Structures are given as C-alpha cells and as structure tokens.
Computed example of a mutant assay.
Amino acid sequence: MANSAPSFHFISGLPRSGSTLLAALLRQNPRFHAGMTSPVGSLFSALLNQFSADSEFGPVVTQEQRKRMLSGLFGNYYADQVGKDVVFDTNRQWCAKLPALLDLFPQAKVIACVRNVAWVMDSIERLYRANPYENTKLFNDDAERNTVYSRVDTLAQRNRLVGFAWAALKDAYYGEHANSLLLVEYDLLVTQPEKVLRLVYEFLGETWFEHDFEQVEYDAPEFDQALGLKGLHKVRPKIEATARRTILPPDLFEQYAQLDFWKDSQNSEANVIRTARNARAIDNGND
C-alpha cells in the first residue's frame, strides 16, 4: 500500500528568532521533517507570477489548475520524505501567503518565531562583525554596508530581510487567518524549550514526543558560506541561555526595541507564547 501524503505545517516569522532551532528540535521526532528555509516559497511565488494577471498565460490557466500546481509543489518537493507524517516548510514569506496556504491546506498551522526587533538587529550585526573579510549578500553596496546605522536601516526596509518579515508577520497577526498562527518568542524557546515545545504540539494536535534538549544538531555551512555570513544556521548542541549586552548604539537599539506588537493581544486572534515586555535579553546562539 502506498504511503499517505504527509500533513503540511509552516515555520515563519522573524530572522534570528529561533526558527532553525525549532526545526532542529522538531526533526528529532521520527514522524516529522523540518529544516531551514526551503526553495518552495520562492517557487510558489514564481509560479503564481506565471499565471497571474500580468502574464500571457493567466487567461488560459483555470483556478483549479492553479491550485493543483501550487499544492503539487509541496508534494513533489517533499516526495522523498518517505515515512514522514508531518512536514514543516520554513519560509519568512508564508506569513504573507496565509489566504492561499490555508485554502490549499485548510488544516495547516503556521508557527512564527519572534524576538524583540532590536535584538534581531543585534544578532545579525554580531554575525556581520564576525565575518570582517566578507561582503555578505545581505547588502547590495558600500552605501548599505558602511556603518551599523546604514546596515540596520537597510535591513529594516519593507522589502529587505527584517523589514519584510516583520511586516508580513504583522499582516498575519491582525488578519482573518490569525487563529491558525502561533507566535513563539525566542526568549522562552531557549529558556523553557520543553514547555514551549509541548504547547507547540498541543497547537498542532500532535502526540508528544520526548525530545533531547542536551543534543540538538543542525548546521548548513555551505548555504551560509554562499550568503557570506558564516554561522547563520548553526545550532549549538545544548540549549542554554546567557544574558548579554547589545553591541548596537543606544539610540539605534531604542529605535527598534518597541516594535514587538505581539505583546498586545487586542485585535488579534493569534496564539502567542510570550514573555513580559521588560524581560531581560538572552542569547544562546541558536537563532
């Protein structure tokens, strides 16, 4: 008998907020497949462009054909995940695609990893400074990469790494599909991983699996090297948190520290695992 198709769920949210760590934990469950950002999101957008209004093929591709082709991307890309009951696809753009995703997969859930935006910027800046002999592809030219101010402001633009992810997440948080969304704060994930993961399982309706929080493994050195940002997806074996100071100038840190809209539960039906707004900053390198 052929294996039944897996269920699909999605990991999204802000960069440097624990999505790789979450995937590394979930993949410990032999029933689950999870990993770093996949190309499915880019393929999804490219295919959608090919039969949308500005394409010559738009008039000849029916709505049902569009849905079959888009859903087929997931089934075909993950066809080699034999024996996996649940597949988690990771991409920051999924928060901006909830209407399509939930029409294709009505039972799907989206787990969005979040972190105070100032600490997201701090984390990326630390990686940038740790690679001083490399011009990372995060920045297009010297005008963008010259100083910490230009780097952070560039990342915050609505079409760039942090700004896009933040805007897409906010769109989903206040949107009509928010009840299919679970926001997981980085601070809690690294300080109370078992409690957080149990809540994730409950949200997904899955049977609990005993995870090993002392031996967590994930790394993608080839991908990180191609991006020019070594260590971007490296997860340390043991989950533990230590307090640290920011390397951002105080004015720049303060500018981005108040953007954690998910602290306010009004006007949103999203599910959130969160800490108090003034919780102390923590880090364990597992972003």
Results as ranks from 00 to 15, higher is better:
Ile111Thr: 00
Val235Ala: 05
Ser71Pro: 01
Thr147Ser: 15
Met36Leu: 10
Gly285Thr: 04
Gln28Leu: 08
Pro132Ser: 07
Cys95Leu: 08
Val216Arg: 00
Ala257Ile: 01
Gln63Leu: 14
Arg129Gly: 11
Asn278Phe: 07
Val152Thr: 12
Gln63Pro: 05
Ala172Val: 08
Asp141Pro: 04
Gly231Pro: 02
Asp260Leu: 13
Glu269Gly: 12
Phe74Gly: 00
Thr246Asn: 10
Val114Asn: 03
Thr246Ile: 02
Glu134Met: 06
Ile124Asn: 03
Val40His: 05
Asp122His: 11
Pro132Asp: 04
Ala100Trp: 08
Pro59Trp: 11
Ile282His: 13
Cys95Thr: 13
Asp122Gly: 11
Leu138Val: 09
Glu56Tyr: 06
Gly228Ile: 03
Val40Asn: 12
Tyr128Asn: 15
Val184Asp: 02
Leu252Trp: 12
Gly35Met: 02
Phe105Ile: 10
Trp94Val: 05
Phe223Cys: 01
Ser17Phe: 05
Ser52Glu: 13
Asp141His: 15
Gln65Cys: 08
Tyr133His: 15
Glu210Asn: 14
Arg274Val: 11
Glu210Thr: 11
Glu240Val: 14
Thr20Asn: 00
Ser12Ile: 03
Pro250Leu: 13
Gln50Ile: 06
Trp94Ser: 09
Asp85Ala: 13
Leu43Thr: 03
Asn131Lys: 02
Asn49Lys: 11
Leu21Thr: 00
Asp122Arg: 07
Leu104Gln: 00
Gln63Arg: 12
Asp219Asn: 05
Ala257His: 14
Leu101Gln: 11
Thr20Ile: 09
Ala165Leu: 00
Gly58His: 12
Lys97Met: 15
His233Asp: 12
Met121Leu: 15
Gln258Pro: 04
Glu144Trp: 14
Gly205Asp: 10
Ala46Ser: 13
Trp262Arg: 06
Gly83Tyr: 03
Gln258Cys: 08
Trp166Thr: 09
Thr37Glu: 15
Ile11Gln: 04
Thr147Arg: 07
Ser12Asp: 01
Gly35Gln: 06
Phe44His: 15
Gln258Ala: 12
Lys263Asp: 08
Tyr133Leu: 15
Asn91Glu: 06
Ala108Thr: 11
Leu197Pro: 06
Trp262Asn: 02
Phe203Asn: 02
Leu227Ile: 13
Asp187Ala: 09
Glu214Cys: 09
Thr62Gly: 09
Ala168Tyr: 03
His233Tyr: 06
Lys137Gly: 15
Gly228Trp: 10
Leu227Tyr: 04
Phe209Ile: 06
Ala279Leu: 08
